[in-house]
């Protein structure tokens, strides 16, 4: 017996042989990659007859602190693909650089516009990156929406998340938006068949209304946002939009918390 704390309550060496100290390590597996730090909230997108509309606000939060207010979370890949990032911002920056290097490699030889990577290719690539990283126990803490046109220049919209799960639907939303915006989007575009009857103006209006609802109810959101419309004509990306016609009158009617007495 000795006085060292690690020997307390353990079998005696002279009776049972030396105790394996490998069980006394203070270090565990790497965990710092397994939770997000600076985060972006929802990304929402909807298909319409000629393309896709996608939007995300310009806020990056540090926990509940609104830390960065000019963060562009939509990234144009080329003339027919845009990626929207929810989740960890540094992982988004890594993916941004990964996509830059992919773009450089793909364009060493000049190709016709039709031979360029399209949104479907890009989604396949990104989902494989996400799945590889989660299988390494080192996930990229993002939920991505890939919006644009596929190989036949038809509207394409799909998501990939930090587990490598993929999903496709005529309307998609990540994060809080999956709960708050998705039902609103589905009211106008319930299924793939309806997409053909939705105009660009309708889709943009729908996305703007949804962004407004998200700002009303998501405490990690902001009224400045980016919106992109992807059609055969290319990508129309606006990165400094402001939510218009806000009305907080509904707040008066909310009861059950806050400072009101009854």
């Amino acid at each position: 017996m000795n006085h060292l704390p690690q020997a307390w309550g353990r079998p005696r060496d002279d009776v049972y042989g030396a105790y394996s100290n490998s069980f006394l390590q203070t270090s565990g597996p790497t965990t710092h990659t397994q939770s997000p730090i600076v985060t972006g909230t929802s990304v929402i997108a909807v298909k319409f007859k000629d393309g896709v509309v996608i939007a995300a606000d310009n806020l990056a939060s540090y926990g509940s602190l609104a830390r960065f207010t000019d963060v562009k979370r939509l990234r144009k890949f080329n003339t027919r693909a845009v990626v929207g990032f929810g989740g960890d911002v540094s992982d988004m920056q890594y993916l941004d650089r990964l996509l830059s290097s992919l773009d450089i490699r793909e364009n060493y030889a000049e190709e016709s516009p039709d031979a360029q990577l399209h949104a479907k290719n890009l989604h396949t690539y990104l989902s494989k990156v996400m799945y590889k990283r989660r299988s390494d126990f080192n996930p990229l803490w993002n939920h991505l929406l890939v919006a644009g046109l596929d190989g036949e220049n038809k509207p394409f919209l799909a998501s990939a998340d930090l587990l490598g799960t993929t999903f496709s639907s005529p309307t998609l939303a990540t994060g809080f938006g999956a709960h708050l915006a998705q039902p609103i989007l589905r009211r106008t575009v319930p299924d793939e068949a309806t997409v053909a009857s939705v105009t660009k103006e309708q889709a943009v209006e729908l996305v703007k209304e949804s962004m407004k609802v998200l700002f009303y109810r998501d405490a990690r959101s902001m009224d400045k946002y980016s919106i992109a419309v992807i059609t055969k004509e290319g990508v129309e990306l606006k990165e400094n939009e402001k939510l218009e016609n806000q009305s907080w009158a509904f707040a008066e009617g909310i009861r059950g918390y806050g400072t009101q007495v009854n």
């Binding site: 990056a60 960065f68 207010t69 963060v71 911002v89 988004m92 890594y94 941004d96 650089r97 830059s100």
Partner: peptide, 11 residues
Amino acid sequence: IELPVDGQVGS
């Protein structure tokens, strides 16, 4: 011009 750093998302 002074380019943004690769992956830069804000100004």
